[in-house]
Write a protein that binds this DNA or RNA. Structure first.
Length: 195
DNA sequence: CCTGCGATTTGCT
DNA sequence: GCAAATCGCAGGC
């Protein structure tokens, strides 16, 4: 366990370490956006020297957020449709991020259904990186914004963090062998069953 | 239960 | 010009 959280507020220093460490520790934390959100149950880590990471190509207009200071949101458009939320990690000049892949909804289920559609079961509201941003109302407007300030709120687990499972990352074609997908064991809100 | 496909935009080659 | 860190729906078993 690391640390450092004196108050309920999560400081940028939390993100200024190994992206894989942060990705593991985030499981069990609560993520809220405008008071809507839930417990993080699935993450993936991407590092600079990683062919699957956007920063692999170096510094461009798109990746400058990744090369910037830790503790910011990196939001980009996937398949022209979905906004995917990442937390920028490691000191400025490095380039790494944690992709938030699934939440167990705890707050604002009504608003989530208003955005996602009324017929979704609880387990289908936030069980995917594109689904959770839609449920929370996160868009490209949040790219390069500060995670330690409203409307973002990231809170440590109230008790013991859940047991972790590491497996291969999903939906990528490069560096698929890396075990950098982390999820809460036996949790029904993950995006897909683990191997 | 599972597999296949279209949607729709951006960023880099 | 095309691949992409996805999703929902259709259709088959």
């Amino acid at each position: 366990m690391s640390a450092a959280s004196a108050g309920p507020e999560l400081s940028p220093a939390f993100f200024a370490r190994s992206v894989h460490e942060v990705a593991r520790e985030l499981i069990g934390y609560r993520l809220l956006f405008d008071r809507v959100g839930g417990t993080i149950v699935e993450t993936e880590s991407y590092e600079r020297d990683d062919p699957a990471c956007h920063a692999y190509v170096g510094l461009t207009k798109r990746t400058e957020v990744l090369f910037g200071p830790p503790g910011r949101a990196y939001v980009y458009l996937s398949y022209g449709i979905h906004s995917l939320l990442n937390f920028v990690c490691e000191p400025a000049g490095e380039a790494a991020a944690v992709l938030i892949r699934a939440l167990e909804p705890t707050d604002g289920l009504g608003e989530m259904r208003a955005r996602r559609g009324p017929k979704h079961a609880d387990t289908e509201l936030c069980n995917g990186p594109g689904k959770l941003t839609e449920a929370l109302g996160i868009t490209l407007a949040q790219n390069d914004t500060d995670l330690s300030r409203p409307p973002f709120e990231i809170l440590p687990p109230p008790g013991e963090p859940p047991e972790l499972v590491a497996s291969r990352r999903i939906g990528i074609t490069k560096a698929t062998e890396k075990p950098w997908r982390f999820s809460a064991a036996a949790n029904r809100f993950v995006s897909r069953p683990r191997p």
